[in-house]
Nucleic acid binder design. Sequence first.
DNA 1: ATGAAAGCGCTAACAA
DNA 2: TTGTTAGCGCTTTCAT
Lengths: 321, 321
Amino acid sequence: MRELNYVPNALAQSLKGRSTRTLGLVVGDVSNPFFTLLARGLEDAATAAGYSVILCNSDDDPKKEKAYLEILARRRVDGLVLTPSQTDPQPVLDWARQSGPVCLVDRPVAGLDFHAAGIDVVRGESLLAAEKLVEHLISHGHKRIAIVNGPPTLATAVDRLNGYRRALTVAGLKVDKRLEREGQFSVESGRETTLELLAKKPAPTAIFATNNQLALGAMLAARDRGLRIPDDLALVTFEDIPHVADVWPFISVAAQAAASMGQEAGRFILERIQRHGAHHAQLKGGGAKDEPLHGRELVLDTELRLRRSCGCASASGGIFP
Amino acid sequence: MRELNYVPNALAQSLKGRSTRTLGLVVGDVSNPFFTLLARGLEDAATAAGYSVILCNSDDDPKKEKAYLEILARRRVDGLVLTPSQTDPQPVLDWARQSGPVCLVDRPVAGLDFHAAGIDVVRGESLLAAEKLVEHLISHGHKRIAIVNGPPTLATAVDRLNGYRRALTVAGLKVDKRLEREGQFSVESGRETTLELLAKKPAPTAIFATNNQLALGAMLAARDRGLRIPDDLALVTFEDIPHVADVWPFISVAAQAAASMGQEAGRFILERIQRHGAHHAQLKGGGAKDEPLHGRELVLDTELRLRRSCGCASASGGIFP
DNA sequence: ATGAAAGCGCTAACAA
DNA sequence: TTGTTAGCGCTTTCAT
């Protein structure tokens, strides 16, 4: 009788029950391949558990982020996976307290006691990887190494800057603020700041771009100035562009497992949602794990992939002239 | 008084009203840069109009697609933006009749009278662009040109195959089915089928990979066999990988404006939602556009970008050795 | 003007 | 077992 086209209304179900089976995902920009993979990973984890995900692009703008959080809260998403766009921990704390489980991905919020707040964090190892990258540049003989960074409001930018500085210090090179540039994590920003850097009296001989978009911008800048990489300017960065490196093994990177990051974030948030739900609807028997469940932190390994842009010879035979 | 933390419940609002202010987006795979940009474009258009988007990856699998459509229908999304994964027009027709506005992106469904069904289509020019690409290979003197294609169930694959055949025919070359390979629109598939092609007695001297993932796979295959591009094997494909071509002007492509496609799809679907809503809730006065509104088709231009993989000399100076 | 009530489509608790 | 009912948080209508 209801074979004649009946589709249950999930809204009504959600209104009654305490779950929307929906996750909110707020990333800087899905077009950044890193976030693309992250989104895919989360989507897979979510789908497997019967959840859908609402995708939001904050462009790392706290205003946009705020607007999205508001929308997601109204929609009563069961969990939030967020790449925080600012230093202020309040929005995240508020969400955790009022709107439900949160998992921070890619970067934590400086000054946020995620452990106590019951907020999970999944991120890559940034500081150490950055240090290794710069250390490698130093091993190639570079002394004037510049950093093309993202906004200092993002933990990844801060970590990578600290790694950069540490490498210099350890090598006995002095930290020169004039070689430290910050901007957005975008191609345009990378191009502009690199251009500024290259205009300096003694120009840097190597650049550490803190993500792949910035690196792309730096390469554009090098091209603008007629510089060859790595001969005239060496370059290292974070995050591979999927598949591209396989056919064009050129850019040396510290690679993060973006898809895994998304999946792990999914695992965290789903687990937390389960407990959260069990908590709200006081289940009578069964698994009574009622301890508050502190925030966990999962730090994924970052793998150094040295190719040509740093000055190393191409490992692979190279099919291209 | 309600400054003390009140968040309206969008579920209840939606349950009462007739709108969820949500769009469903089903693409093959967001990790394909083409779909990434499409998703971003749609998200932008949606957000600007106060809509959110639920992202789904069908992997071009009709089963997964069906499951997602079911979920989206239950969630009562106001509109559906879909890259259809099969030849059967029924699912789409059903959606349009029962669940609301639909906009097909990237590809239509063969045999679907979208115009009559009131279904919009936003796509790139595939056939002609494919023909030009292959025509160009022919102009380089190639006679044995293979096609590495996606599933014949997708309109883009069909169109590109037809464009390929037409170019051959027009040039007086004969169509050789053994040089026509199909599979998935994935890197792995591209690698496998290219490997098969390269194992043939007189191997093809040029390959037309019908999307960038396949092209990446084809390049991997070339590397596997120790072939150089374009010297030993020429290659052309569809869709640029954003920014990469700027720093590595290597792959010759027919480029589509993916982000625009997403935005235009957004415009179409939002407009249709508006009318649809106005239709349901019989508005008393005002703009009485009650004509049924036929399905529209927007075909975006595809731009040929000839670089090196086809055999053309690099236009740009090239910063890489 | 402000206030009360019905109902959106479900689920869960209860009654028969 | 099957049937009825209250209520999730809103919006809209109707009465005050």
